[in-house]
């Protein structure tokens, strides 16, 4: 999973596989960070949103 694990090799299958994995993890991670961050900011600034769009 990480380049420092024994099994890691710098080859195409690892690029493709782990590329996909880290891409997904980044989106999830960044997406959640954004949401939490934005919500914290919104809360502090008092700019609450509304749910009418869903």
């Amino acid at each position: 999973m990480f380049p420092f694990s024994f099994e890691w090799t710098w080859d195409m299958s690892h690029y493709v596989f782990h590329g996909g994995l880290w891409y997904a993890l980044s989106i999830i991670g960044l997406g959640m960070t954004y949401c939490i961050g934005k919500s914290a900011y919104d809360t502090i600034t008092g700019k609450g949103g509304h749910h009418e769009d869903h």
Partner: peptide, 21 residues
């Protein structure tokens, strides 16, 4: 709770990204 309210709102906003992933 305002934070949670905002969180759920913001999560809805970007839900398409999550859904795509």
């Amino acid at each position: 709770i305002p934070f949670f309210h905002n969180l759920s709102h913001n999560m809805h906003e970007v839900m398409a990204v999550f859904a795509a992933t």
